[in-house]
Amino acid sequence: MDDPNRLEAKGLARAKIRGKRRRVQAIRRRTARGALALFAVVWTVVFAQLVSGNDPALSRPPVADRRHVPPRVAPEEEFAPEAEPEPSEEFPPEAEVEAVEVEPEPEPEPEPIVTSAS
């Protein structure tokens, strides 16, 4: 037969272990929730950056070690209608062919209406 003091001590030890286990589970749960919340916040920040056109990868000029990577396109640009091409340096405005003034062709005179009565 076990000593009642010994049984009490065992019960206390068991309760302590149970309490510790509960605390550890709570810490794990809180850490997982915190990590997910942090992920959501960072995801939103990066997304907002991308949508607002301030994304560093889209605004940075291409460098030598990125030559294998095709340039990224911002979401709003992907669906936008094609913009007019800007004049490039290869064809400066000075070199453009000057517009030749062409006299407007005279409008043809309307033909007289011929009716069966005439």
Partner: peptide
């Protein structure tokens, strides 16, 4: 956001996960 991010969703996810 993932729906509107379209093709960039994986890239954004990777960047966010790396920061986390």
């Amino acid at each position: 956001g993932a729906v509107s991010a379209g093709p960039h969703v994986f890239w954004i996810t990777s960047r966010a996960a790396g920061t986390v």
